[in-house]
Design a protein around this nucleic acid. Sequence first.
DNA 1: CATTATCGGGG
DNA 2: GTGTACGATAATG
Length: 742
Amino acid sequence: MIYDADYIVEEKTIVRLFEKNGKKAIRHDTTLEPYIYGLAEEDISRKLSTICAERRGEKVCVKNVELVEKYFAGKKRLFHKITFRHPQDVPSLREEIKMFCKIFEYDIPFVKRFCMDRGIVPLEHIERNPLKVMSLDIEVLCHGAPNARGDPVIMISTWGERGKVFSWKRADTEYVEFCKDERDMFERFFSFLQEEDPEIILTYNGDNFDFPYIEERCRILRIKNAFLDNLAIKKRTRGSEASMVGIVHVDMYPIMRRTMSLTRYTLEDVYFELFGVEKKDIDTGLIPKYWEKEDTRMILAEYALSDAEATYKIGASFLPLQYELCRIVGQMLFDISRSSTSLLVEYLLMRHAFQKNEVVPNKGHGSEGTYEGGFVMEPRKGLHEHVVVLDFKSLYPSIIITHNIDPQTIDCPCCKNNVAPTGHHFCMKKDAFIPSILKTLLEKRGEIKKKMKSDEDKSLYFQQWALKILANSFYGYLAYPLSRWYSKECAEATTAWGRQYLKTIMESAQKHHFSVIYGDTDSLFITMGDANTDNVRHFLEEVNSQLPSPMELEYEGYYQTGLFVTKKKYALYNGKILTRGLEIVRRDWSKIARDTQKSILSTVLQGNPQTAAEIIKDVTKRIKNGDVPIEDLVINTQLTMPPSHYKTKGAHVIVAERLMEEGQEVRVGDIISFLVKKGKGLIRDKAVTYEEFVKNKYEYDPDYYIQNQVMPAVMRIMTAFGYTEDTLKYEKSEQKGLEEWF
DNA sequence: CATTATCGGGG
DNA sequence: GTGTACGATAATG
């Protein structure tokens, strides 16, 4: 069973397949040569085979050219199959080749190409060959943002078959291994890793934090070993990726972002959401204090261990889904765990294209203007009771299948009866590429769900989930301008049909005397007068008998109350609060704004907007009177470039410039913390650091904190009750328009 | 209103 | 690495 792969170059390009069949082995495969296709409008094989270029002072040439028959967009065409000695020769030679013919499949990474062409199914027998998983996490001694240049790693925690913490100050627990110093800690940790020899290392944000940090510290400490030689931190446009040869690093953070819908994705939040219990947490500002004394160092060790354990547990819950995605898509775990769903769809389509002898279209070039998306109804604002949510089961996939939407079927000479609201029509006779793959996915999912009723096999659940994720990503893939099968017309037709179906259902719901409160793309929110859902069931049956298969409207859930503010902004309550688009969670808001918002949202959903109004008045009063602790007023913003590069300078940039003039060290990437002091003028001219604020005994600007912080945060919620800003602020006490919402 | 800039996760 | 590619939201002009 293959769990990872890479390639090296000797005389030939060698794909190394990392396998586990009982025990581990590395298999070499030299059967695939790098290649691309050139459209053969005429046979120019001889010309093409002489093309050479220079790369780093070395001459590289096309290795071979042969004529092959392939399909392109469903039509038989002749292509030159152009082979190379080295994958890296492709980018060096393709520009020159492009001068003579149209080229295709010139940008497919070699190992991915190998997986598609050889029909590799990674992790095919994972139930028989369970992979050894180990999580890791580091703790850093820092004041403010951690900086690898000066702030040492103080603990490394791991979890797997056992929990272990490496620390270079004593802590009296059996799981802590005491090390002499930081260097000794790293060395012991690396040899531990070598002994354990896991196939998978799990982290939480290890791509951007733990591994880059470890690498930098080891460089500073001049530690060298095989593990570090095999560790690669690749810079991407956004963030980085940390990989090792023969060990799959899976960073759970990006997976959780894609898989769960939360407002925040800290380890603590994710853990709580998944397991319903609070994970051990500490104020990271206190780490230096805990580290200092032997009796409190335990707290730190426990925290370190709990992070590694939580990461491991999250992995145990979500790796199976990644495994299934690997098997369906046919690419390696490292890539699958970091790929957007659009990219997963692309790998899958490319593999199918190879099997059908189709040449893969080239990537799109970028945005070609926007078009209309799903229908979003302006909600009936305010608090509603007995809310039922209905949604279309896989709306876009079922539309694509039902109407056979594909770049190859668009505007055929036949089938003029299958017309989208956009005016384009689609051929119903052809077995189209994308709809047929999509149909296979949905049918497979149906079978698995059926099987799940009698079969206990847990992997079935993850199989159907993986299939659902992929199916639901096809529309986004068609609509993504950089994708290889991008088609604005197809995407547009899909959403247009979607709007038509949703509007029809909404009208129908109204005819059945439900009150429609809100609807977005594939869902509608209705109220029923009481908690009896029988009428809804009837309505669903009737609707579904009329919808073309596989389209289906489903019952999503019942909620005691629902608060609707504007399009895309609402909250539902059924013992638990579920919010969409309402909460502010970012660090560039002050604590007072965040806290106030949280408390009024909860109050409102329990049916007490008056109380919420009182809370707001009380907070604004406290701000006016200067009663708010200044810690709650601090705003943190990152300096992302040198101050002189800014075209528009925000408050934090002005503060950073002043600090630099005063000779303080301010670096790009630093978080600038500031408060807004009382006075006239622009916000940025009133921004001062915490130290300046305290030293000069400034007063804060109550108007700023009310107008720009607390009010925007709470007004998102309170406008739904007809409150205006003026009625909520401290000065006035009038509450108008309240009764009409009840 | 459009344009420019920032957030996230980690300590 | 035969790969450029986040998506949402706030502040400024």
